[in-house]
Design a protein around this nucleic acid. Structure first.
Length: 526
RNA sequence: GCGUCCUUAGCUCAGUUGGAUAGAGCAAUGCCCUUCUAAGGCAUCGGUCAGAGGUUCGAAUCCUCUAGGGCGUACCA
């Protein structure tokens, strides 16, 4: 809709015209401050320029009015244009707002270590990534969702040790000495008892079997993670394991050429060329690769698969990694600008107003699946999707658990349910409703219709700017308009019943489509 | 120290291609159900957009500095 208006104005003025939302809808549907920027060039007052421009519009069928007010030019869309657009939207159903963008994008997100179930902090990246995925696909991009599994390195060794100790301590009642770092949690005792069944008690005492146990456990834990994600409607297309990559190392290192060098028996990467504080070790003097080495091979493998763009969603604690990985990508002969890293800031928790620290050792980790069980996937997704992800997020655990009306997901769902109820209560047939023409609407009805028709712009903007929170924001605003309209206007029995129902069907469509892009199913009754 | 992200109402947050009077929800106070689901609506209260400069017709938004906070600054992942 906006694109169409913008295109029309571009043809008329031969330049791009900024269209924005008027402060007050009574001014019109769109407005532009173009007269202000032209005033310097033309040496005339903005008011006069705006006046002249407004008067230059004749009988375009798209606009019913073009007016200048205090230097702004306000456009009012014609009823026939809006009606036509509404009908078009309704016949396209949930494809409303879809597009046929081209391009392949590899989106990597979550990638939590397979050493324990997901905790509440992981939910933010998972929800954000999955929302981007749904938005991008709706717009036509060919997107692949990928999970990078860190199934190598110290943490896997640590997992093996932790599993044995947990088993001996909790299951066999032995006194054990805990090392400085270890994992802990209910999932470990569950795994330990399963290990005893499968491998026997002795497997918990045999240090030579730690590795074997760890690898077995990491697969079990990954399955737990996948199940946790499934519970919030997040699905991955591909999983790439770190351990499986190291066979490529020699070839990848050769590919980087001068980007890597040897010093004191270690291999370094020239990451300082890309703004890193100093060059980083990628292979230790004993020949073991560092974590960065795995990431380098992984990104080489990503680029060899030939996507057009790459998006990584990382936690903010990885931001120092951006320069290093981009350096590697460049040394590998690829364009580092193709790799876009979105950071999701930390989530910190409050309990009773006091900062609450999750600690694996103290067993105070708040698991994501516990929260999902309590408040449901929809509320969790909506709440995380509503926050832009470049601000550190703080929330109270008790508040998160509240399921009353203070939770905005119910507000949006209720709006959709109200419309469904009206449609099912009305005697009017769907055909009658669809063939109604939207004209002579009140200002409120017009405002509601226009808001509902904005969905495509919101989707595009939310994805291209990577600001997924714009979608839930929009849905809240649309729901608010609907609730007010519902309160003010009796629909059933109204002389304009079919018209109003058609309008409401557009609203319901936008809510339903928007929610599904958030991985939430709209409810027809509450 | 350096790098980086941030600071908007009592709380949690929206608001960036610079635009008209800075917005929601929660909390607080008061109204509105014999009328399509009150999981709703209306009203009141609440702001030096961290502070100071700058850029210009115009700044929460862009630039500089200052203060405060998160994260990073490992041969851990």
């Amino acid at each position: 809709m906006k694109q169409r208006v913008a295109a029309l104005l571009r043809d008329k003025f031969n330049c791009d015209v900024i269209l924005e939302k008027p402060k007050d809808r009574s001014f019109g549907h769109f407005s532009t401050p173009i007269a202000f920027s032209l005033s310097k060039e033309l040496r005339k007052s903005p008011m006069i320029i705006a006046e002249e421009i407004a008067n230059s519009f004749g009988d375009e069928s798209v606009f019913s009015a073009v007016e200048s007010v205090k230097g702004y030019i306000n456009f009012r869309l014609s009823e026939s244009f809006l009606d036509e657009y509404a009908s078009w939207a309704l016949t396209h159903g949930e494809q409303f707002g879809s597009d046929d963008k081209k391009g392949t994008i590899l989106l990597e997100f979550v990638s939590a270590n397979p050493t324990g179930p997901l905790h509440i902090g992981h939910a933010r990246g998972a929800v954000y990534g999955d929302t981007l995925l749904r938005l991008g696909r709706h717009l036509g991009y060919d997107m692949t969702a990928e999970y990078y599994v860190n199934d190598a390195g110290n943490q896997i060794d640590l997992l093996g040790v932790s599993l044995q100790l947990e088993g001996r301590s909790a299951l066999l009642g032995e006194e054990v000495e805990w090392p400085e770092k270890y994992y802990r949690g209910e999932y470990l005792s569950d795994l330990a008892s399963e290990a005893v069944e499968l491998f026997g008690e002795e497997s918990l005492r045999d240090e030579s079997r730690q590795k074997e146990l760890a690898l077995w456990a990491k697969d079990k834990i990954l399955a737990l993670i996948v199940a946790d994600l499934k519970a919030i409607n997040v699905h991955f297309d591909t999983f790439v394991g770190e351990a499986s990559l190291y066979g490529e190392w020699d070839r990848v290192m050769a590919k980087m050429g001068d980007g890597v060098y040897q010093n004191e028996g270690k291999t370094f990467i020239h990451s300082s060329d890309f703004g890193d504080d100093h060059d980083r070790v990628v292979v230790r003097d004993d020949g073991r690769p560092t974590y960065l080495a795995g990431d380098i091979i992984y990104h080489n493998q990503k680029f060899e698969r030939g996507y057009e763009d790459y998006i990584n969603i990382w936690g903010a604690d990885h931001h120092g990694y951006i320069a290093r990985v981009k350096a590697a990508v460049s040394f590998l002969g690829y364009n580092p600008e193709k790799l876009e890293v979105q950071l999701s800031q930390m989530v910190s928790l409050l309990k009773d107003g006091e900062p609450f620290k999750m600690s694996k050792r103290a067993g105070t980790v708040i698991q994501m699946n516990d929260v999902v069980e309590e408040i449901g996937s929809d509320a969790l997704r909506f709440m995380f999707a509503s926050k832009k992800c470049d601000t550190a997020l703080e929330f109270d655990i008790e508040e998160l658990k509240r399921t009353d009306s203070s939770n905005p997901i119910y507000y949006v769902q209720y709006a959709h349910a109200r419309i469904q109820t009206l449609v099912s209560k009305s005697e009017k047939s769907l055909d009658e409703i669809m063939s109604a023409h939207l004209h002579g609407l009140s200002a409120d009805a017009d405002g509601l219709l226009f808001e509902a028709l904005l969905l495509p712009e919101i989707i595009e903007d939310a994805f291209e700017s990577r600001q997924a929170q714009k979608l839930p924001d929009y849905l809240k605003a649309l729901a608010a308009k609907l609730h007010k309209f519902y309160y003010d206007t009796r629909i059933i029995g109204n002389e304009d019943e079919t018209k109003l129902l058609k309008l409401l069907l557009v609203v319901a469509l936008s809510i339903r489509t928007g929610l599904s892009l958030l991985g939430i199913e709209a409810k027809n009754s509450m």
